[in-house]
Design a protein around this nucleic acid. Structure first.
Lengths: 205, 205
DNA sequence: AAATTAATATACTGAATAGTATGTTGTCAA
DNA sequence: TTGACAACATACTATTCAGTATATTAATTT
């Protein structure tokens, strides 16, 4: 029972996605200001015409990147996997180990897509700042939900402010990425991880 | 007993410093790639001639910025003040509160000069990465010295690896700056600070 | 099938930018 | 006092880049 795929050579949504994916990689590597439109379309099968058919300006591409690529990516990588863990703290540590500790060093050198843009673009463009702030708050919000769940299930001390924990954990994620990017030391992750575990002990019941 | 100041209108060292200071502010605000040579010299009393008399290329200015401005600034702001504290952990928290907690929000929005450059330039230029790494390691090294002192004086548990603590603390500094820059929430510092205090409890004797 | 519209391509423009070539002037040693 | 050189200025170049104008072709509608 095959679904006959229409052999359309033009598809607005697909083209948008392809451009966003190419932009993601390029901007992740070289920064927003260090990436040109020609760089981006050069990595796709399209030309500038397609780009400007989709995005009014380069900044609009940046906004779409945060909303449509980076924010969903954060949910996918750092939030959804927590559902499998009864104890969210355990899940958070596991994800850290998996997504950072066992990640290709070549990849880690590029840091965190969200953090990179926050540091580069927040002071430069208000709308960018707004979008990035939304993505950070989304991350914190969703993390807090899991922490609250963990608190109700008796894994986390009742007295502790879960908002504060969520903020501290996101801070640590950005810090991890940032320091790993700056230092080139393969041992640095484990070192930071051990100390974060130590922090977690102070909030566990 | 006045020192007769020579009324020289030309001074290589002074000019270099003026250019570096202007570059620091501009790059701190707009990023390295977002700052042009004309931007920089426009903020000084000089012109491009002076700039290229001092620095062969824009990248060389960046290297000098890290070595001659940013690295010394870190020592001045985060290390030297610790000398006044018997307990280094107390000093670290005090400095955090002073230099971040009580800092002008307009200034905090720009983040940390070192972290900004690490995130922007590390993947782009090898020499930049090297210089930034050196600055980070200098910070960690000097911090560890104080932690070792604190350990000897009985403020910090003997069993704990001071290198790991130093790395975690620098990570937290970058993370603090990064998250404060991203979120625009005036309460965020206090929140992070409280959780860091909680971490410090795990290493105090 | 023709007409219309949407998706993509091409060629161009004006502004910005790193770097250069060369000119000028202050400083200092002889 | 005067050359010589170091510090700084000016004018220019080649390139890159965001954005535009317009052309072309695939898809859809009538």
């Amino acid at each position: 029972m095959k679904v006959p795929v229409p052999k359309k050579t033009r598809n607005l949504e697909k083209s948008r996605k392809e451009i966003l994916d190419a932009a993601f990689i390029q901007i992740f590597t070289k920064g927003f200001q260090g990436t040109s439109i020609d760089d981006i379309v050069g990595k796709t099968q399209f030309t500038k015409g397609t780009f400007y058919h989709q995005f009014p300006t380069k900044l609009d591409l940046g906004y779409a990147l945060v909303d449509e690529v980076i924010a969903p990516m954060i949910i996918d990588r750092w939030i959804v996997p927590l559902e499998k863990f009864e104890n969210p703290l355990e899940g958070i540590l596991f994800q850290l180990k998996t997504l950072i500790g066992e990640s290709d060093p070549k990849h880690l050198k590029l840091g965190c897509p969200l953090n990179n843009l926050v540091q580069e673009m927040s002071p430069i463009d208000k709308e960018f700042h707004k979008k990035l702030k939304q993505a950070l708050n989304l991350w914190i919000d969703e993390l807090e939900k899991h922490l609250l769940r963990g608190q109700k299930s008796g894994f986390i001390q009742k007295s502790i402010n879960t908002r504060q924990i969520a903020q501290f954990i996101v801070m640590a994620h950005e810090g991890f990425y940032g320091l790993i990017k700056g230092l080139d030391d393969p041992d640095i992750f484990k070192s930071l991880y051990i100390q974060l575990q130590s922090y977690f002990k102070t909030i566990e019941v």
